[in-house]
């Protein structure tokens, strides 16, 4: 299995629901707590596994705004794992999920340097590196209803811009989406072969207007002839 996410940039409205949902699930989850520093003071910050950024493409007035959520891509060529000296970072064989064993991490930050996607964040209060677990503690939990065995960010996304599934299975929802919508990887040139894919904005269909535009235009009330319409 090759589990991961598809993020649909055509419908992501940048609402941050996925980011906060991730935070609330995971703060009591397997890598919790996700510490917050100065939560009520100056420059509040904290550990998040999922962050939503926004970009503008093109110059006004031909500009488009793109909302861009990012979490761990569960790369196939995960250098973050290779560089880890302690073995705390590893990629699961059975499903490709990249995890950090919180009991082994020495907090050297090295893996975060190796990650191109900013997916790893150090928790200063435990001194350990943390990252998206693909909600391992949800997706295999058989006590949850099947529909709920999905990452928190996926179930919560109000725009259904997030999809979870097995990329090894050509019939999975994610594989189909990638095929049909041209799902792409970020910075493929670095060779990490990220599992997560992004769906580009759809091309808008052209709506014909000739069939509703009159050759001779009406310019006053007098030009209308009443139609017989029964009330």
């Amino acid at each position: 299995m090759k589990l991961g996410l598809v993020v649909d940039l055509d419908v992501c409205v940048g609402c941050h629901a996925c980011a906060v949902s991730c935070k609330q699930w995971n703060t009591s989850g397997m890598s919790g707590a996700l510490t917050d520093y100065n939560p009520y003071g100056e420059d509040p910050s904290g550990v998040w596994f999922n962050r939503v950024r926004s970009y503008e493409v093109g110059d006004y007035p031909q500009n488009k705004t793109i909302n861009f959520p990012m979490s761990c891509m569960h790369c196939e060529q995960a250098d973050c794992v290779d560089v880890c000296p302690t073995g705390a970072s590893y990629k699961r064989v059975e499903d490709g999920i990249v995890l950090i064993d919180q009991d082994k991490c020495m907090g050297c930050n090295y893996c975060s340097w190796a990650c191109p996607y900013g997916a790893r964040e150090l928790d200063r209060s435990t001194g350990t590196m943390k990252k998206c677990t693909l909600c391992l503690d949800r997706i295999y939990d058989e006590r949850l209803e099947e529909v709920d065995r999905q990452p928190s960010c996926v179930i919560t996304c109000p725009a259904h811009a997030r999809h979870f599934g097995d990329f090894d299975d050509p019939d999975s929802n994610v594989s189909q989406l990638v095929r049909e919508r041209g799902g792409y990887q970020l910075m493929p040139e670095l060779g990490y072969s990220p599992t997560n894919r992004y769906l580009p904005p759809r091309v808008t269909r052209l709506i014909p207007t000739e069939d509703v535009s009159k050759k001779s235009l009406i310019s006053s009330v007098k030009e209308w002839v009443n139609k017989m319409v029964e009330r």
């Binding site: 009591s28 989850g29 073995g87 995890l99 064993d101 919180q102």
Partner: peptide
């Protein structure tokens, strides 16, 4: 108000990587 927040409703349950795996596994590459 606190300066640090570590909200959780129960202690985290870590998934432990076996030492065997740490020592034996080659590169993901």
């Amino acid at each position: 108000s606190p300066d640090l927040l570590r909200y959780q409703t129960h202690a985290a349950v870590n998934v432990v990587r076996s030492m065997e795996d740490v020592l034996e596994r080659g590169s993901v590459h």
